[in-house]
Simulated scan of single mutants.
Amino acid sequence: MKFVDEYRDPELAKRIAAEIARLSDGRPLKFMEVCGGHTHTIYKHGIEDVLPRSIDLVHGPGCPVCVLPMGRIDDAIAIARTEGVIFTTFGDMMRVPGSKGSLLDAKAEGADVRFVYSPLDALKLARQHPDRQVVFFAIGFETTAPSTAVTLLRARAERVKNFSVFCNHVTIIPAIKAILDSPDLRLDGFIGPGHVSMVIGMRPYTFIARDHHKPVVIAGFEPLDIIQAVYLLVKQISEGRAEVENQYTRVVRPEGNVRALEAMARTMELRPFFEWRGLGFITHSALKLRPEFADWDAELRYEVPGLRVADPKACQCGEVLKGVIKPWECKVFGTACTPETPIGTCMVSPEGACAAYYNYGRFSMAAERDHLRSLSQTP
């Protein structure tokens, strides 16, 4: 890719959309973009307004901040409030609400909570403060897990014992399986996550095409990437195929990133089960540190509540994460729940579907409402 403009050509977008309309021939098709980054591109650039009305894009559980249950936030706050701890986290986790406030609230009450750009920043803090315990709040899909793995390997090599990781890395494939098994959602295909696929490659998605007969197209994050991915999905369906295709060839390789996968395998292993917001407990869907790294495991070093906490009754993040409802269909969207006063995680995270709708989707939301209203009034 030489220039971003290559992937934002409006005339080319219109031509591809016209071909999508021709191939779909008015057939209603519903595709899930698994990644929250895709959701923001869709609404920032008005992609739904370019595509035919028969194409419906729904949002999946591809935002790692959004799928983390409130109980794990409470666990993180408990560690942050431990005397002598410097608790480090990515910035988007600071305002995620737990049952009794957020990490930002804990910081205001005296806890030493700091945001960092990478786990290596947290390890640097540990070197600078040998008299303090530094904990890194590790979250994310396979995209961010390799950086945590490399940091753990370096911490062990340097024997930095005042550093530990509160591991909350999750894996995308079990979540997709849970969605495919959901009885209240019909999907015709998937726009596969680009950054996750950069690490895990193409092979893990083959079961979707083989066992469920749904096409998958791994896509990049520019507007034309997503429009082309929709075209490839519609083309597969029109030809009676169900395969895994790679639109994001400039970044994703079929085998993924072998060295990143090796680093993850050396430092982490699958948990027997893990709770996801909106999806409940999913087996083998998250990572924990291997026993060899017990000295750097914050879950073993600190006492945490470990309690399951129900979401606020007014919040419908779970339904949004499963693609059952659109964000604006939530009862508190844009009223009680805004980016400034979030109730649910989908409104907090920069990758959250509700934040995307709120920040970019007002005109699309109004158009969708008008469209649904017109359908209901059609005799």
Rank of each mutant, 00 (worst) to 15 (best):
R132S: 13
C354D: 06
D181P: 08
M1V: 13
E245S: 13
F166N: 09
D9A: 09
K313T: 12
T89I: 05
R186E: 14
R271Q: 13
C330M: 15
E275F: 01
T144H: 02
C167I: 13
V85R: 01
E262M: 06
E340C: 02
A145Q: 05
R259G: 11
F273A: 15
K288M: 11
H45L: 04
L104S: 08
T148M: 04
N168G: 01
A294P: 01
G306P: 09
R53Y: 00
A17S: 15
P223R: 15
A294M: 11
L152R: 11
F221L: 11
R308N: 04
Q133D: 15
T335E: 11
P291T: 09
A260L: 07
C354F: 10
M1I: 11
A209E: 08
E262C: 00
C346N: 07
A356M: 05
S164R: 06
V116N: 12
S147I: 14
F221E: 00
R156F: 10
T206I: 06
H129Q: 14
D181Q: 15
A286F: 03
H213T: 07
F333T: 01
A356G: 09
G140N: 09
C330P: 11
D211F: 10
I47T: 09
L287V: 07
D74S: 02
V170F: 04
T171P: 01
R277V: 02
P215K: 11
S182A: 15
A229T: 10
G318R: 03
W276A: 06
V258P: 06
L68N: 05
T338Y: 14
G26I: 12
V50F: 03
A108W: 13
R95V: 09
E239Q: 15
H212Y: 15
Q377L: 13
A18N: 14
A122N: 09
N162D: 11
L29D: 11
A353T: 06
E262F: 05
R127I: 02
D56M: 03
Y231P: 07
V320P: 07
A229I: 08
A314F: 00
E368H: 15
D297K: 12
R186Y: 12
Y358Q: 09
F115D: 12
L321V: 04
W296N: 03
D49R: 13
R266V: 02
A336T: 13
S182F: 15
T143G: 05
R154K: 13
L279V: 02
